[in-house]
Nucleic acid binder design. Structure first.
Lengths: 344, 344
DNA sequence: CTGAAAGCGCTTACAG
DNA sequence: CTGAAAGCGCTTACAG
């Protein structure tokens, strides 16, 4: 394995010059630079990143931590972040939290601190106060998506606002009997996403002078299966079936559409369905939804992180609260329409 | 930031003893060990992984390269591999190839070689001969899934055999008009997965004395959408519609089932559908399929890689061809049945 | 069992 | 512009 010494010898210069030439620094004569480059090419020299890190303190590596990898939001964010980082010459070390509290502690108290990463990117993960302090003390900035972080920078859509918008769309179409399929009360790992979205739904109803019956609020788990199951229960009700269903995510909405079809109901003639996300498959399902541009969210937040890393005065404000509200847009497709005259 | 010197000073021993005590080595008195541990705890000392790497040459880090992250097979494999590695104390650096040839070259010729990873895990990616040689020269073993690798160790299901089994299941039920929805001819990135699966389909038909009409072979792209579209074309044919469809992956099969329903056809009474994968949603769709246990495949192959890394004689056989055929199982659910009497 | 010291392979003030 | 040398923070033969 050719080292920097070998290159220096072959080029007839010192290792300092080799280092300067190869990293594109100033103060190297054109001649020396050319000789070094030729020698490096001839030897197939690749600088040791480890030595670089030890000497400079820079890793050019970002730690990414998320609770799941195999769910749409997370794998989409991950792909976007990875591509953005690679382009900027950064590596990505992946930590997923599916292994429980023990694994989580190990990641935060050990792996993230061993100076292998320059910064941390979180998706729907909230570091504890002490975890955050430790990272800040080591000068490692954090950027998150999927939920606000007290004491760090985040890009997050306003869940309540998104839910209100979806519900208002249904109300404006003339729906009065609107059901909601959310997640689990007070749960959703670290953030209260379910609660926020349910709040938006309830707020919109109240503003319109409508009531939210408890039998119209169902609890799924953000999968197609649960959307299907819950929608069947709602739609099969012989007395009080809704004319529209707002699902807290598109995947549950896909399930709801399939449930309606299986019951012989037409979407949107008999039942309107709307979701949140603008999932890759939403166009296929003709689903009206609230677009949160997940891919762009990943790119933008990764870029923000890179920007911080290049800020020479980063130390003065490693981690400060900075909520960037990510905009949402209503996308109307064919799963929502005015309710049939008789249905009201 | 407390360093090893600080710990040594506080414990009243040398840095050599600190190093030995903290890494659980032999030849440390119980007393010294206790003092070191107390000092390390008091100072909140975390050893620098970079210095460890530079001194030992070991990274405890695996490079994982895959063409996609946001597709089911890949995100599932990734989650399984990540969990297995973390448990063993290894980190995972993720490289995804969606950025084209330029990114690919950068990853193989630069990132993977800078001595940041001890080994490489590939999913449906075939390193070129020279890429493989370089990694071997640096003593970095490769383990892959999703396709055989000449000159490296792989865990792969026999695509042809899986396809044959799926087709035979349909034949055994009495189907004679069996369609196939595959991928793109000769494509599928680095491996000829489509071709292999189509071969299995054709072989099974021929063995049973059946012919494979060209109008019964359709080309999708492994998504639900394409399965839906292609199935509609097949099933809508007024003269020559099949009684069964074998899809090269479960996601296309989901699409096929939805297409059948939208056409007013019953599954399995009017049309049987089978896939390959045993996707997380296959049970929900009642889909008969060929299980390839993706999660277990990820775990097993990651373990094989860790095993190699701990082999003291690894250098003698860093990368040798070793095909481990991953077993497949037929899972019969409710999407396949005997064809209706009139349909034959 | 324990410590002094070399070494891992770079980068970067400091002199020249 | 260029080079000698210190330094990054560990590990590990080698002596004792």
């Amino acid at each position: 394995m050719a080292g920097i010494e070998d290159v220096a010898r072959l080029a007839g210069v010192s290792t300092a010059t080799v280092s300067r030439a190869l990293s594109g620094k100033e103060h190297v004569s054109a001649k020396a630079r050319a000789r070094v480059e030729a020698a490096a090419a001839e030897l197939g020299y690749v600088a040791s990143h480890t030595a670089y890190t030890l000497a400079t303190g820079r890793n050019r590596n970002i730690g990414v931590v998320m609770p799941y990898i195999d769910r749409w939001f997370f794998s989409t964010i991950l792909e976007a972040v990875e591509t953005t980082l690679i382009e900027a010459g950064y590596d990505l070390t992946l930590y997923n939290l599916s292994g429980g509290q023990g694994q989580r502690d190990k990641i935060f108290n050990d792996l993230l601190l061993r100076k292998r990463v320059d910064a941390v990117f979180t998706a729907a993960v909230a570091p504890s106060q002490s975890e955050l302090e430790q990272l800040t003390r080591m000068g490692k900035p954090i950027v998150g998506v999927g939920g606000k972080l007290e004491g760090a920078r985040t890009f997050v859509m306003d869940d309540t606002k998104a839910a209100r918008l979806a519900t208002e769309h249904l109300i404006a179409l003339g729906h009065r009997r609107i059901a909601f399929i959310g997640g689990t009360e007070g749960s959703d790992r670290e953030f209260r996403q379910h609660d926020l979205r349910k709040n938006g739904y309830v707020e919109a109803l109240h503003t319109a002078g409508l009531s939210s019956k408890t039998q119209w609020v169902a609890y799924g788990d953000y999968t197609i299966q649960s959307g299907y199951y819950e929608a069947k229960q709602l739609l099969g009700d012989p007395r009080d079936a809704p004319t529209a269903i707002f699902c807290a995510c598109d995947e549950m909405a896909f399930g709801a559409i399939m449930a309606a079809k299986d019951l012989g109901l037409r979407v949107p003639e008999d039942i309107s369905v709307i979701g949140i996300d603008n999932h890759d498959m939403s166009a296929f399902f003709e689903l009206s939804t609230i677009d949160q541009q997940v891919r762009q969210q990943g790119i933008a937040s990764a870029k923000r992180l890179l920007e911080l890393l290049e800020d020479p005065r980063l130390e003065e404000h490693v981690n400060v609260t900075e909520d960037l509200e990510w905009p949402v847009h209503l996308v109307v497709r064919s799963s929502t329409a005015r309710p049939a005259a008789g249905a009201r």
